[in-house]
Amino acid sequence: MIDLVIIPLFKIAVVLNGVLVSVTFMVLLERKVIAWAQSRLGPMRVGPWGVLQAIVDPIKLILKEDITPTKADKWMFTLAPILSLVPALVVFSVVPFGGDALFYITDINVGLLFIISVTSIGVYGIILAGWASNSKYPLLASLRAAAQLISYEIAVTMTLVSVILTAGTLSMVGIVEAQQETGFWFGFVQPVAFVLVFIGGLAETNRIPFDLPEAEQELTGGFHTEYSGMRFALFFLAEYANMIVIAAVVTALFWGGWLRPFPSVDALFPSVGALSFLNLAFLDLIPSWVWFFGKMFVFLYLFIWIRATLPRYRYDQLMRIGWKVLIPIALANIVVTAVVKVWLL
């Protein structure tokens, strides 16, 4: 009972809090970084350098009036944000934040498949939001979003097959441990897969350059045009939680998860004892979860950096990249990985 319910509940509370707090500060960081990229100051009024903006924003959203348009489907309209937030949060139950069993909520043997399937439930929330709003912009945006999400999901899922081939397991913990055993982070073994998953991740989270579903100039606010107050906040949370998920998955699959850099110089050069200082054993002093969050932060920063740098694609370009570029590369990557793997056996 204690092992099965109480301890997981405690961990869930910690993870949920962590996600919510990091989302609010992500928003602040994003505003600040984009402001600096454009030679502005960004939020400066609330607290020192605008730090407290992260706290007052959610309070404002809670206090704001939550409008249900007269033409909207009342229950569906409320269900949509919940349906989009819940999967985005639940995915964190299999993300390994650290090497010890203390640092992940659970380790199921189909972890990666779980992540793929649960994140794709989020598309129901989006399409339901567009449909329930009964307004033109949200409907168009949700159709776009659905088409975009499912197109890029194929590419990402296919790419992940080659990662599973390399790791030989679907468990998230198992994949990181496989990187420890091989001595190489899979980002070096599967650089193509990393790039594909990262591009797919940008598209799956509707980020620039793939933010067509909420292209302000054409669709006002995207699928959540009609939303306000807390229901809008739930969509917002889901979007940023999804970004954190992508960063965590990329970290765990390709950049060694909680592992420190240079894990096995000894194993690479067994005969050269003199090189063992390259092992950098002192890095072991830094706890595993710090490595994980550090790497995750790098990717979250990359998301923001890309947003500050790139323009948006056209919709036909977006579809062409998804179907005609990413999928062939992903298929070729699977074949090459499988052939190399059999050759090495």
Binding site: L16, T78, D107, G229, M230
Partner: peptide, 29 residues
């Protein structure tokens, strides 16, 4: 191993509904 996942689903749904109710109580309309 799936029990924590189920718990997380319940907690996440609970969180979403809870915030909506709280916000419904304090907002002006």
């Amino acid at each position: 191993a799936y029990i924590p996942v189920m718990l997380f689903v319940l907690v996440a749904i609970g969180f979403a509904i809870f915030t909506l109710i709280i916000s419904g109580l304090v907002q002006s309309s």
